[in-house]
């Protein structure tokens, strides 16, 4: 970026070419993910893979947005670490909860709604 020599050190304008390139890549990926989802059968993608593929594409798109639109590529390591730690903690939250709730789903499904204790409003109605 030779034409930006007089800019302060914290100012990194991204090249328009790069931004447009990222944008078209994102559009391509969006169309691609809709197509694979809509006609995965015809493309010969097993149904079990369509969801992981969609999520991988989403992650790739997320990477492009983070790295270039959000300037993470040029950002301080600490900021990147801070942001990524949020995903780590969200993953912790999801995984532990998933692990636990998986064990008692039967109890919820076999729960007979009619046996629910009456709530205050129902009791009031009856009285």
């Amino acid at each position: 970026m030779s034409d930006h020599d007089n800019l302060p050190s914290f100012c990194h304008p991204a090249a328009p070419k790069l931004l447009f390139g990222v944008f078209f890549a994102l559009i391509f990926l969006t169309i691609f993910t809709v197509v694979t989802s809509a006609s995965g059968k015809w493309l010969g993608i097993p149904p079990a893979f369509t969801f992981p593929i969609a999520m991988m594409i989403a992650t790739l798109k997320g990477f492009l947005v983070c790295a270039f639109f959000m300037h993470m590529w040029w950002d301080k390591g600490f900021n990147i670490m801070a942001f990524l730690s949020s995903i780590l903690f969200a993953a912790l939250f999801i995984s532990m909860t998933l692990m636990d709730t998986g064990h008692y789903q039967d109890a919820i499904e076999s729960y007979d709604v009619k046996q629910m204790p009456k709530v205050a409003e129902q009791l009031a109605d009856e009285a």
Partner: peptide, 14 residues
């Protein structure tokens, strides 16, 4: 956090 839920019906593994 699960140590607040030992008697809540939480699974044994967790």
């Amino acid at each position: 956090w699960g140590h607040h839920m030992f008697t809540s019906g939480q699974s044994q593994v967790v």
